[in-house]
Design a protein around this nucleic acid. Structure first.
Lengths: 235, 235
DNA sequence: CATTGTGAAGTGATTCACAGCA
DNA sequence: TGCTGTGAATCACTTCACAATG
Protein backbone atom coordinates (compact mmCIF):
# COMPACT_ATOMS: atom_id res chain seq x y z
CA UNK A 1 0.00 0.00 0.00
CA UNK A 2 2.59 2.50 1.11
CA UNK A 3 5.17 2.69 -1.60
CA UNK A 4 7.77 0.75 0.36
CA UNK A 5 8.14 -1.48 -2.66
CA UNK A 6 11.28 -0.51 -4.56
CA UNK A 7 14.60 0.14 -2.79
CA UNK A 8 16.97 -1.72 -5.06
CA UNK A 9 19.96 -2.13 -2.79
CA UNK A 10 22.07 1.01 -2.88
CA UNK A 11 24.90 -1.35 -2.00
CA UNK A 12 23.74 -2.97 1.25
CA UNK A 13 25.72 -1.19 3.98
CA UNK A 14 27.63 -4.10 5.58
CA UNK A 15 26.70 -4.06 9.28
CA UNK A 16 23.68 -1.75 9.11
CA UNK A 17 21.64 -4.55 7.63
CA UNK A 18 18.78 -2.44 6.38
CA UNK A 19 16.14 -4.93 7.46
CA UNK A 20 12.90 -4.98 5.57
CA UNK A 21 10.24 -4.92 8.23
CA UNK A 22 6.75 -6.15 7.27
CA UNK A 23 4.09 -3.47 7.23
CA UNK A 24 1.98 -5.43 9.72
CA UNK A 25 4.86 -5.45 12.15
CA UNK A 26 5.44 -1.72 11.81
CA UNK A 27 1.81 -1.08 12.66
CA UNK A 28 2.28 -2.96 15.93
CA UNK A 29 5.52 -1.37 17.05
CA UNK A 30 3.73 1.70 18.47
CA UNK A 31 1.52 -0.66 20.48
CA UNK A 32 4.54 -2.42 21.94
CA UNK A 33 6.08 0.93 22.67
CA UNK A 34 3.04 1.98 24.63
CA UNK A 35 3.00 -1.28 26.60
CA UNK A 36 6.69 -0.86 27.41
CA UNK A 37 6.17 2.70 28.54
CA UNK A 38 3.40 1.58 30.86
CA UNK A 39 5.63 -1.15 32.32
CA UNK A 40 8.50 1.26 32.69
CA UNK A 41 6.30 3.67 34.61
CA UNK A 42 5.49 0.85 37.00
CA UNK A 43 9.24 0.34 37.42
CA UNK A 44 9.18 -3.09 35.81
CA UNK A 45 12.74 -3.83 34.72
CA UNK A 46 12.34 -7.03 32.73
CA UNK A 47 9.44 -8.64 30.89
CA UNK A 48 9.02 -11.93 29.05
CA UNK A 49 7.50 -12.07 25.59
CA UNK A 50 4.41 -13.54 27.23
CA UNK A 51 3.99 -10.61 29.61
CA UNK A 52 4.69 -8.03 26.95
CA UNK A 53 2.33 -9.69 24.54
CA UNK A 54 -0.48 -9.69 27.07
CA UNK A 55 0.07 -6.01 27.78
CA UNK A 56 -0.03 -5.27 24.07
CA UNK A 57 -3.00 -7.49 23.28
CA UNK A 58 -1.26 -9.92 20.91
CA UNK A 59 0.10 -13.46 21.30
CA UNK A 60 3.67 -14.05 22.28
CA UNK A 61 4.77 -15.81 19.09
CA UNK A 62 3.75 -12.81 17.05
CA UNK A 63 5.50 -10.44 19.39
CA UNK A 64 8.73 -12.40 19.27
CA UNK A 65 8.61 -12.67 15.51
CA UNK A 66 7.98 -8.94 15.25
CA UNK A 67 10.89 -8.08 17.52
CA UNK A 68 13.14 -10.45 15.63
CA UNK A 69 12.92 -8.14 12.62
CA UNK A 70 14.50 -5.35 14.63
CA UNK A 71 17.41 -7.33 16.01
CA UNK A 72 18.07 -9.66 18.93
CA UNK A 73 17.29 -7.55 21.93
CA UNK A 74 16.12 -10.27 24.35
CA UNK A 75 17.96 -12.61 26.67
CA UNK A 76 17.11 -16.30 26.48
CA UNK A 77 15.77 -17.67 29.72
CA UNK A 78 15.14 -14.14 30.99
CA UNK A 79 13.14 -11.89 28.68
CA UNK A 80 13.54 -8.30 27.55
CA UNK A 81 14.97 -5.33 29.38
CA UNK A 82 12.04 -2.94 29.35
CA UNK A 83 13.88 0.34 28.96
CA UNK A 84 16.43 -0.96 26.50
CA UNK A 85 13.77 -2.45 24.26
CA UNK A 86 11.71 0.68 24.55
CA UNK A 87 14.59 2.76 23.30
CA UNK A 88 15.29 0.40 20.43
CA UNK A 89 11.70 0.48 19.22
CA UNK A 90 11.48 4.25 19.58
CA UNK A 91 14.63 4.59 17.50
CA UNK A 92 13.32 2.19 14.89
CA UNK A 93 10.06 4.09 14.49
CA UNK A 94 11.89 7.38 14.40
CA UNK A 95 10.69 8.81 17.67
CA UNK A 96 14.12 9.76 18.88
CA UNK A 97 13.69 12.82 16.72
CA UNK A 98 10.89 15.38 16.70
CA UNK A 99 8.36 15.67 13.91
CA UNK A 100 6.45 18.76 12.89
CA UNK A 101 2.89 18.43 11.69
CA UNK A 102 0.42 20.88 10.25
CA UNK A 103 -3.32 20.41 10.73
CA UNK A 104 -5.65 21.61 8.01
CA UNK A 105 -9.34 22.11 8.72
CA UNK A 106 -10.03 23.34 12.24
CA UNK A 107 -13.64 22.27 12.73
CA UNK A 108 -14.69 20.03 15.59
CA UNK A 109 -12.24 17.31 14.73
CA UNK A 110 -9.40 19.68 13.94
CA UNK A 111 -9.86 21.31 17.32
CA UNK A 112 -9.75 17.96 19.04
CA UNK A 113 -6.59 17.02 17.14
CA UNK A 114 -4.93 20.35 17.89
CA UNK A 115 -5.52 19.78 21.59
CA UNK A 116 -4.67 16.08 21.60
CA UNK A 117 -2.03 15.50 24.25
CA UNK A 118 -0.94 12.19 22.77
CA UNK A 119 0.84 13.96 19.93
CA UNK A 120 3.19 16.18 21.89
CA UNK A 121 4.10 13.41 24.30
CA UNK A 122 5.37 11.29 21.42
CA UNK A 123 7.45 13.92 19.74
CA UNK A 124 4.89 15.26 17.32
CA UNK A 125 4.80 19.03 17.41
CA UNK A 126 1.92 20.90 15.87
CA UNK A 127 3.67 23.60 13.88
CA UNK A 128 0.58 25.17 12.41
CA UNK A 129 -3.20 25.21 12.13
CA UNK A 130 -4.76 26.16 8.84
CA UNK A 131 -8.33 26.81 7.82
CA UNK A 132 -10.02 28.08 4.72
CA UNK A 133 -12.72 30.02 6.52
CA UNK A 134 -11.69 33.69 6.96
CA UNK A 135 -13.94 33.84 10.02
CA UNK A 136 -11.74 31.30 11.76
CA UNK A 137 -8.36 32.70 10.73
CA UNK A 138 -6.77 34.46 13.69
CA UNK A 139 -8.67 32.41 16.23
CA UNK A 140 -6.59 30.96 19.04
CA UNK A 141 -6.57 27.21 19.74
CA UNK A 142 -4.40 26.39 22.71
CA UNK A 143 -1.31 28.50 22.13
CA UNK A 144 -1.56 28.41 18.36
CA UNK A 145 -3.32 30.79 16.01
CA UNK A 146 -5.24 29.61 12.98
CA UNK A 147 -3.60 30.66 9.73
CA UNK A 148 -5.01 31.07 6.28
CA UNK A 149 -4.69 28.53 3.52
CA UNK A 150 -2.12 30.64 1.74
CA UNK A 151 0.31 30.35 4.61
CA UNK A 152 0.74 26.62 4.11
CA UNK A 153 3.96 27.02 2.15
CA UNK A 154 5.53 29.29 4.72
CA UNK A 155 4.56 27.06 7.63
CA UNK A 156 5.80 23.89 5.96
CA UNK A 157 9.15 25.33 4.99
CA UNK A 158 9.78 27.32 8.18
CA UNK A 159 9.04 24.44 10.52
CA UNK A 160 10.31 21.68 8.23
CA UNK A 161 6.91 20.01 8.35
CA UNK A 162 6.88 16.57 6.78
CA UNK A 163 3.48 15.37 7.95
CA UNK A 164 0.15 16.95 7.10
CA UNK A 165 -3.15 16.13 8.80
CA UNK A 166 -6.33 16.69 6.79
CA UNK A 167 -9.48 17.27 8.84
CA UNK A 168 -11.51 19.12 6.24
CA UNK A 169 -14.77 18.08 4.60
CA UNK A 170 -14.34 15.47 1.87
CA UNK A 171 -14.95 18.01 -0.88
CA UNK A 172 -11.85 20.00 0.05
CA UNK A 173 -9.56 17.09 0.83
CA UNK A 174 -7.92 16.52 -2.55
CA UNK A 175 -7.22 20.19 -3.07
CA UNK A 176 -5.76 20.55 0.41
CA UNK A 177 -3.68 17.44 -0.15
CA UNK A 178 -2.29 18.82 -3.42
CA UNK A 179 -1.28 22.02 -1.70
CA UNK A 180 0.38 20.19 1.16
CA UNK A 181 2.35 18.05 -1.25
CA UNK A 182 3.30 21.08 -3.31
CA UNK A 183 4.52 22.74 -0.13
CA UNK A 184 6.79 19.79 0.58
CA UNK A 185 4.83 17.48 2.84
CA UNK A 186 5.52 13.81 2.13
CA UNK A 187 3.20 12.05 4.58
CA UNK A 188 -0.50 12.65 5.00
CA UNK A 189 -2.94 11.52 7.65
CA UNK A 190 -6.39 11.85 6.14
CA UNK A 191 -9.53 12.08 8.26
CA UNK A 192 -11.72 13.20 5.39
CA UNK A 193 -13.91 10.49 3.85
CA UNK A 194 -12.29 10.81 0.45
CA UNK A 195 -9.84 8.84 -1.67
CA UNK A 196 -6.68 10.87 -2.17
CA UNK A 197 -4.40 10.74 -5.17
CA UNK A 198 -0.77 11.51 -4.47
CA UNK A 199 2.64 11.05 -6.09
CA UNK A 200 4.45 7.77 -5.39
CA UNK A 201 6.82 9.15 -2.82
CA UNK A 202 4.00 10.42 -0.59
CA UNK A 203 2.54 8.12 2.08
CA UNK A 204 -1.13 8.43 2.96
CA UNK A 205 -2.92 6.88 5.88
CA UNK A 206 -6.64 7.12 6.31
CA UNK A 207 -8.76 7.22 9.44
CA UNK A 208 -12.47 6.99 8.78
CA UNK A 209 -14.79 7.04 11.75
CA UNK A 210 -17.91 6.04 9.92
CA UNK A 211 -16.20 3.10 8.23
CA UNK A 212 -15.24 1.71 11.62
CA UNK A 213 -18.83 1.94 12.78
CA UNK A 214 -20.04 0.26 9.61
CA UNK A 215 -17.69 -2.66 10.16
CA UNK A 216 -19.07 -3.05 13.66
CA UNK A 217 -22.61 -2.84 12.32
CA UNK A 218 -21.88 -5.69 9.93
CA UNK A 219 -20.78 -7.92 12.76
CA UNK A 220 -23.68 -6.84 14.95
CA UNK A 221 -26.05 -7.81 12.20
CA UNK A 222 -24.45 -11.20 11.86
CA UNK A 223 -24.70 -11.79 15.55
CA UNK A 224 -28.37 -10.84 15.45
CA UNK A 225 -29.00 -13.06 12.43
CA UNK A 226 -27.14 -15.93 13.98
CA UNK A 227 -29.23 -15.65 17.12
CA UNK A 228 -32.47 -15.47 15.13
CA UNK A 229 -31.45 -18.48 13.06
CA UNK A 230 -30.64 -20.40 16.18
CA UNK A 231 -34.03 -19.58 17.67
CA UNK A 232 -35.71 -20.66 14.45
CA UNK A 233 -33.86 -23.95 14.29
CA UNK A 234 -34.88 -24.73 17.83
CA UNK A 235 -38.55 -23.98 17.20
CA UNK B 1 -9.43 -10.83 15.50
CA UNK B 2 -13.14 -10.30 15.68
CA UNK B 3 -14.66 -13.50 16.91
CA UNK B 4 -16.13 -14.39 13.52
CA UNK B 5 -14.44 -17.75 13.90
CA UNK B 6 -16.99 -20.28 15.07
CA UNK B 7 -20.43 -20.50 13.46
CA UNK B 8 -20.71 -24.24 13.08
CA UNK B 9 -23.47 -24.47 10.50
CA UNK B 10 -26.81 -24.07 12.21
CA UNK B 11 -28.05 -26.14 9.29
CA UNK B 12 -27.06 -24.04 6.26
CA UNK B 13 -30.27 -22.35 5.17
CA UNK B 14 -30.67 -23.69 1.58
CA UNK B 15 -30.84 -20.64 -0.70
CA UNK B 16 -29.62 -17.98 1.77
CA UNK B 17 -26.11 -19.27 1.40
CA UNK B 18 -24.69 -17.54 4.44
CA UNK B 19 -21.44 -16.68 2.68
CA UNK B 20 -18.34 -16.23 4.80
CA UNK B 21 -16.95 -12.91 3.73
CA UNK B 22 -13.25 -12.23 4.42
CA UNK B 23 -12.59 -9.55 7.00
CA UNK B 24 -10.48 -7.57 4.53
CA UNK B 25 -13.41 -7.46 2.13
CA UNK B 26 -15.81 -6.28 4.81
CA UNK B 27 -13.49 -3.41 5.64
CA UNK B 28 -13.69 -2.26 2.02
CA UNK B 29 -17.44 -2.51 1.55
CA UNK B 30 -18.05 0.88 3.20
CA UNK B 31 -15.53 2.38 0.79
CA UNK B 32 -17.36 0.93 -2.19
CA UNK B 33 -20.60 2.17 -0.74
CA UNK B 34 -19.26 5.67 -0.52
CA UNK B 35 -17.99 5.55 -4.10
CA UNK B 36 -21.36 4.30 -5.31
CA UNK B 37 -23.17 7.03 -3.42
CA UNK B 38 -20.96 9.64 -5.04
CA UNK B 39 -21.64 8.18 -8.49
CA UNK B 40 -25.34 7.99 -7.80
CA UNK B 41 -25.38 11.65 -6.82
CA UNK B 42 -23.82 12.45 -10.18
CA UNK B 43 -26.65 10.45 -11.77
CA UNK B 44 -24.34 7.76 -13.08
CA UNK B 45 -26.49 4.72 -13.79
CA UNK B 46 -23.93 2.06 -14.60
CA UNK B 47 -20.27 1.60 -13.77
CA UNK B 48 -17.66 -0.99 -14.73
CA UNK B 49 -15.45 -2.64 -12.13
CA UNK B 50 -12.63 -0.50 -13.49
CA UNK B 51 -14.51 2.76 -12.92
CA UNK B 52 -15.76 1.73 -9.51
CA UNK B 53 -12.33 0.56 -8.46
CA UNK B 54 -10.77 3.86 -9.43
CA UNK B 55 -13.38 5.76 -7.47
CA UNK B 56 -12.73 3.57 -4.44
CA UNK B 57 -8.95 3.61 -4.71
CA UNK B 58 -8.39 -0.11 -5.29
CA UNK B 59 -7.67 -2.26 -8.36
CA UNK B 60 -10.47 -3.78 -10.35
CA UNK B 61 -9.57 -7.42 -9.73
CA UNK B 62 -9.84 -6.88 -6.01
CA UNK B 63 -13.13 -5.10 -6.36
CA UNK B 64 -14.62 -7.86 -8.48
CA UNK B 65 -13.38 -10.54 -6.13
CA UNK B 66 -14.83 -8.63 -3.18
CA UNK B 67 -18.21 -8.23 -4.84
CA UNK B 68 -18.24 -11.89 -5.82
CA UNK B 69 -18.51 -12.79 -2.12
CA UNK B 70 -21.82 -10.95 -1.92
CA UNK B 71 -23.43 -12.50 -4.96
CA UNK B 72 -23.45 -11.92 -8.70
CA UNK B 73 -24.75 -8.41 -9.04
CA UNK B 74 -23.00 -7.37 -12.25
CA UNK B 75 -23.80 -7.82 -15.92
CA UNK B 76 -21.05 -9.21 -18.17
CA UNK B 77 -20.11 -6.84 -20.93
CA UNK B 78 -21.86 -3.98 -19.14
CA UNK B 79 -20.88 -3.46 -15.52
CA UNK B 80 -22.84 -2.81 -12.34
CA UNK B 81 -26.08 -0.92 -11.84
CA UNK B 82 -25.02 1.78 -9.41
CA UNK B 83 -28.17 2.02 -7.32
CA UNK B 84 -28.84 -1.68 -7.26
CA UNK B 85 -25.34 -2.51 -6.12
CA UNK B 86 -25.46 0.28 -3.60
CA UNK B 87 -28.55 -1.19 -2.05
CA UNK B 88 -27.09 -4.67 -1.96
CA UNK B 89 -23.95 -3.51 -0.19
CA UNK B 90 -25.91 -1.41 2.27
CA UNK B 91 -28.04 -4.41 3.08
CA UNK B 92 -25.03 -6.64 3.47
CA UNK B 93 -23.36 -4.25 5.92
CA UNK B 94 -26.59 -3.80 7.80
CA UNK B 95 -27.25 -0.18 6.93
CA UNK B 96 -30.83 -0.77 5.92
CA UNK B 97 -31.60 -0.62 9.60
CA UNK B 98 -30.73 2.08 12.13
CA UNK B 99 -28.16 1.64 14.85
CA UNK B 100 -28.05 3.42 18.17
CA UNK B 101 -24.71 4.37 19.67
CA UNK B 102 -23.71 5.84 22.97
CA UNK B 103 -20.60 8.00 23.30
CA UNK B 104 -18.68 7.92 26.56
CA UNK B 105 -16.21 10.67 27.39
CA UNK B 106 -17.22 14.05 26.10
CA UNK B 107 -13.90 15.87 25.95
CA UNK B 108 -12.57 17.40 22.76
CA UNK B 109 -12.82 14.22 20.78
CA UNK B 110 -16.18 13.21 22.23
CA UNK B 111 -17.57 16.58 21.23
CA UNK B 112 -16.29 16.16 17.72
CA UNK B 113 -17.81 12.69 17.50
CA UNK B 114 -21.14 13.85 18.90
CA UNK B 115 -21.32 16.49 16.19
CA UNK B 116 -19.99 14.33 13.38
CA UNK B 117 -22.48 14.47 10.53
CA UNK B 118 -21.16 11.31 8.91
CA UNK B 119 -22.81 9.18 11.57
CA UNK B 120 -26.41 10.28 11.21
CA UNK B 121 -26.25 10.18 7.43
CA UNK B 122 -25.36 6.48 7.55
CA UNK B 123 -28.01 5.39 9.97
CA UNK B 124 -26.05 5.73 13.19
CA UNK B 125 -28.04 7.59 15.76
CA UNK B 126 -26.37 8.97 18.85
CA UNK B 127 -28.72 7.88 21.61
CA UNK B 128 -26.74 9.26 24.49
CA UNK B 129 -23.66 11.12 25.68
CA UNK B 130 -22.08 10.12 28.94
CA UNK B 131 -19.32 11.66 31.01
CA UNK B 132 -17.85 11.00 34.39
CA UNK B 133 -17.19 14.63 35.26
CA UNK B 134 -20.12 16.09 37.29
CA UNK B 135 -19.20 19.50 35.94
CA UNK B 136 -20.04 18.35 32.42
CA UNK B 137 -23.23 16.46 33.21
CA UNK B 138 -26.22 18.45 32.07
CA UNK B 139 -24.24 20.33 29.43
CA UNK B 140 -25.86 20.48 25.99
CA UNK B 141 -24.03 19.21 22.89
CA UNK B 142 -26.10 19.72 19.79
CA UNK B 143 -29.54 18.61 20.84
CA UNK B 144 -28.32 16.08 23.36
CA UNK B 145 -27.58 16.51 27.04
CA UNK B 146 -24.63 14.89 28.74
CA UNK B 147 -25.68 12.20 31.20
CA UNK B 148 -23.86 10.76 34.14
CA UNK B 149 -22.02 7.48 34.14
CA UNK B 150 -24.75 5.83 36.13
CA UNK B 151 -27.29 6.37 33.39
CA UNK B 152 -25.48 4.05 31.00
CA UNK B 153 -27.76 1.12 31.74
CA UNK B 154 -30.92 3.12 31.21
CA UNK B 155 -29.69 4.65 27.96
CA UNK B 156 -28.52 1.33 26.55
CA UNK B 157 -31.72 -0.50 27.32
CA UNK B 158 -34.12 2.32 26.43
CA UNK B 159 -32.58 3.01 23.06
CA UNK B 160 -31.50 -0.57 22.32
CA UNK B 161 -27.92 0.58 21.96
CA UNK B 162 -25.61 -2.10 20.60
CA UNK B 163 -22.55 0.02 19.86
CA UNK B 164 -20.53 1.97 22.40
CA UNK B 165 -17.90 4.57 21.55
CA UNK B 166 -15.15 5.16 24.11
CA UNK B 167 -13.48 8.56 23.96
CA UNK B 168 -12.19 8.72 27.51
CA UNK B 169 -8.59 8.86 28.73
CA UNK B 170 -6.82 5.51 28.62
CA UNK B 171 -6.99 5.12 32.37
CA UNK B 172 -10.79 4.99 32.34
CA UNK B 173 -11.24 2.93 29.20
CA UNK B 174 -11.37 -0.58 30.61
CA UNK B 175 -13.79 0.39 33.35
CA UNK B 176 -16.05 2.19 30.91
CA UNK B 177 -15.87 -0.78 28.57
CA UNK B 178 -16.87 -3.18 31.35
CA UNK B 179 -19.88 -1.04 32.19
CA UNK B 180 -20.94 -0.79 28.57
CA UNK B 181 -20.72 -4.54 28.17
CA UNK B 182 -22.61 -5.10 31.43
CA UNK B 183 -25.30 -2.76 30.14
CA UNK B 184 -25.70 -4.88 27.02
CA UNK B 185 -23.46 -3.31 24.40
CA UNK B 186 -21.82 -5.89 22.12
CA UNK B 187 -19.65 -3.73 19.86
CA UNK B 188 -17.14 -1.15 20.96
CA UNK B 189 -15.26 1.51 19.03
CA UNK B 190 -12.30 2.49 21.17
CA UNK B 191 -10.45 5.79 20.73
CA UNK B 192 -8.58 5.49 24.01
CA UNK B 193 -4.97 4.37 23.70
CA UNK B 194 -5.55 1.24 25.77
CA UNK B 195 -5.90 -2.49 25.16
CA UNK B 196 -9.39 -3.60 26.10
CA UNK B 197 -10.34 -7.01 27.42
CA UNK B 198 -13.86 -8.14 26.55
CA UNK B 199 -15.91 -11.35 26.43
CA UNK B 200 -15.74 -13.35 23.20
CA UNK B 201 -19.05 -12.19 21.85
CA UNK B 202 -18.06 -8.53 21.96
CA UNK B 203 -16.33 -6.94 18.96
CA UNK B 204 -13.82 -4.20 19.53
CA UNK B 205 -12.30 -1.90 16.96
CA UNK B 206 -9.59 0.55 17.81
CA UNK B 207 -8.75 3.93 16.35
CA UNK B 208 -5.51 5.38 17.58
CA UNK B 209 -4.44 8.74 16.26
CA UNK B 210 -0.93 8.71 17.57
CA UNK B 211 -0.27 5.23 16.21
CA UNK B 212 -1.14 6.42 12.74
CA UNK B 213 1.29 9.30 13.06
CA UNK B 214 3.99 6.96 14.30
CA UNK B 215 3.56 4.72 11.29
CA UNK B 216 3.97 7.73 9.04
CA UNK B 217 7.03 8.81 11.00
CA UNK B 218 8.62 5.43 10.42
CA UNK B 219 8.22 5.77 6.68
CA UNK B 220 9.39 9.37 6.73
CA UNK B 221 12.52 8.30 8.52
CA UNK B 222 13.18 5.61 5.96
CA UNK B 223 12.76 8.06 3.12
CA UNK B 224 15.20 10.42 4.83
CA UNK B 225 17.69 7.62 5.48
CA UNK B 226 17.38 6.34 1.96
CA UNK B 227 18.11 9.79 0.62
CA UNK B 228 21.09 10.23 2.93
CA UNK B 229 22.46 6.82 1.97
CA UNK B 230 22.07 7.65 -1.66
CA UNK B 231 23.96 10.91 -1.20
CA UNK B 232 26.69 9.04 0.68
CA UNK B 233 27.07 6.40 -2.00
CA UNK B 234 27.47 9.08 -4.66
CA UNK B 235 30.11 10.94 -2.71
C1' DC C 1 -17.05 -8.20 -27.74
C1' DA C 2 -16.47 -5.79 -23.45
C1' DT C 3 -16.73 -7.00 -18.97
C1' DT C 4 -17.85 -10.06 -15.23
C1' DG C 5 -16.86 -13.93 -12.09
C1' DT C 6 -13.51 -17.11 -10.53
C1' DG C 7 -10.12 -21.04 -10.30
C1' DA C 8 -5.20 -21.06 -9.75
C1' DA C 9 -0.91 -18.98 -8.65
C1' DG C 10 1.53 -15.80 -5.98
C1' DT C 11 2.54 -13.01 -1.91
C1' DG C 12 2.38 -11.80 2.76
C1' DA C 13 1.24 -12.58 7.65
C1' DT C 14 0.45 -15.69 11.51
C1' DT C 15 1.14 -19.64 14.16
C1' DC C 16 3.59 -23.79 15.35
C1' DA C 17 7.10 -26.12 17.44
C1' DC C 18 11.57 -26.67 18.84
C1' DA C 19 16.71 -25.95 18.57
C1' DG C 20 19.85 -23.00 20.86
C1' DC C 21 21.40 -20.31 24.49
C1' DA C 22 21.87 -17.53 29.02
C1' DT D 1 15.79 -24.82 33.27
C1' DG D 2 13.07 -21.14 30.97
C1' DC D 3 12.61 -18.27 27.42
C1' DT D 4 14.14 -16.37 23.06
C1' DG D 5 14.72 -16.52 18.08
C1' DT D 6 13.39 -18.71 13.93
C1' DG D 7 12.73 -22.17 10.14
C1' DA D 8 8.72 -24.63 8.45
C1' DA D 9 3.76 -25.09 8.05
C1' DT D 10 -0.42 -22.90 7.74
C1' DC D 11 -3.68 -19.49 6.83
C1' DA D 12 -5.38 -15.18 4.62
C1' DC D 13 -5.37 -12.00 1.10
C1' DT D 14 -4.17 -10.36 -3.57
C1' DT D 15 -3.33 -10.70 -8.28
C1' DC D 16 -3.38 -13.12 -12.61
C1' DA D 17 -5.45 -14.66 -16.47
C1' DC D 18 -9.13 -16.43 -18.93
C1' DA D 19 -13.54 -19.04 -19.70
C1' DA D 20 -18.31 -17.76 -19.43
C1' DT D 21 -21.85 -14.70 -20.99
C1' DG D 22 -25.38 -10.85 -21.55
Amino acid sequence: MTSAASRKGGRARDERLERDIPEATIARLPVYLRALTALSERDVVTASSEELATAAGVNSAKLRKDLSYLGTYGTRGVGYDVNYLRYQIAREIGLTQDWSVVIVGIGNLGHALANYAGFASRGFQVAGLVDNDPARVGEKVGDLTISSFDDIDAIVSNAAVSIGVIATPASAAQDVCDRLVAAGVSSVLNFAPAVLTVPDYVDVRKVDLSIELQILAYHEQRKANGAAELRASLA
